[in-house]
Design a protein around this nucleic acid. Structure first.
Lengths: 228, 228
DNA sequence: ACCTGAACACCGTTCAAGT
DNA sequence: ACCTGAACACCGTTCAAGT
């Protein structure tokens, strides 16, 4: 029938070899389409038109592949201008981080829980910590500020990507007709939980946290004598 | 050999029938021992001395069983005295919630991500929301305060149970010898990330958030005329 | 009523073999 | 060098059968 055999023409790319870029891209698309639970190496293989086992030639395990996806998203976080005041830098970096994760809401659940002890993960943590160090926080107040901001970002983004509206449901959710009897206050607050309010809520919380971190600040003993 | 057959004696309980209580208890022990990823209905069956399929007679699916575990832990949260000032109530409830989850650090990762739309889940959310409603927050500022506090708690507890020290590692972590070169600030902050500091960091963040939520507060229009 | 055992449709990964 | 196919040791769940 109409099979051109071995024709090394321009269209001969029909089955171009796998490479990491194609695998990563397809993996992210698949995770976002089907969710983390339904992602599998076998399904990824099918999507790439290849046996699942071929992927192992490029990544030695699913864990390695997922690490590469973490790297890929971390590299998309835009670094803020380091000459800005620290609060401005912290705000920009927080928003950039959130923006990347909200673009990949299902993968976000993996990434937020993942230990950042790869090379790129450590570099990312360092870029946040340096904001506080540059601002003159000492190690204790810097570490504390780093953690508190991190807690807020982690919780907020987790909730936005996997919270009440999007997360896995109870096996037997309460039918809407009964909800008002059990949780009248939650129902009353309901309109302000809608996604139109997420941005305003996130920003309000971020300003609240950043504003207060200023007060936590204790200066590091300065060597150059430029301190107090 | 020494098998007493069908002896309906007091010791005949050797193989007492399954019940929900035994299943739940064994499931929690197994999750905490082996982790969520290595938990399976088959392993739970083995631990109970029973075929995995017997469990399905008591819970129709793994999802239903896990919902029951969520209920069980929610019921362990001690409700604070409702006559206290709202900040005191919010602080007590936050600490009670955290205490329960820290006692079950591996199951916490499931519970924190789980949609609270079961009967007990909604009741739990309601008990938090009511603190703000009772304090006179209107729906908008109440909803916002509820979320911001929730973000902080979720992130903090997630990090304490699945963060840098305990979470799933990268497939190829950076060897310690290289860490200082990549992330000097993180290494400098390191001592204050240790678990001895978790409590102080959590409390500092909690006070920071609760203190600022006070300012978010806008009064609900009061019907009884007892307002401003 | 409660439990079992085989079966179904899946997993991630190993390994020897193909081109 | 890159990909395949069978196999291994697992999953959650269904279902007919046992007591």
């Amino acid at each position: 029938v109409l099979t051109k055999k071995k024709a090394p023409s321009a269209e001969g790319k029909r089955r171009k070899p796998l490479d990491r870029e194609r695998i990563q891209h397809a993996a992210l698309v698949l995770v976002e389409r089907d969710g983390l639970d339904d992602f599998s190496m076998r399904r990824l293989g099918k999507k790439l038109g290849v046996e699942a086992m071929s992927i192992y030639h490029h990544y030695p395990s699913k864990a390695h592949l997922f690490d590469a996806l973490v790297d890929r998203l971390l590299s998309q976080i835009e670094a803020p201008d380091a000459t800005q005041p620290w609060k401005e830098r912290a705000r920009s970096l927080s928003l950039a981080y959130r923006a990347v994760l909200l673009r990949h809401p299902r993968f976000a659940q993996f990434m937020l829980l993942h230990r950042m002890n790869s090379r790129s993960g450590l570099a990312w943590l360092e870029s946040v910590a340096r904001i506080f160090a540059d601002a003159g926080f000492d190690a204790e107040s810097g570490a504390r500020a780093f953690r508190i901001l991190g807690y807020y970002l982690m919780g907020a983004i987790m909730d936005e990507t996997a919270g009440y509206k999007r997360g896995p449901s109870a096996a037997e959710p309460v039918p809407p007709a009964e909800q008002a009897a059990i949780a009248p206050t939650i129902i009353a607050f309901g309109p302000y939980f809608a996604s139109e309010h997420w941005e305003a809520t996130f920003l309000a919380g971020l300003e609240l946290v950043l504003g207060e971190l200023e007060r936590l600040k204790r200066r590091a003993p300065s060597r150059a004598g430029g301190g107090e």
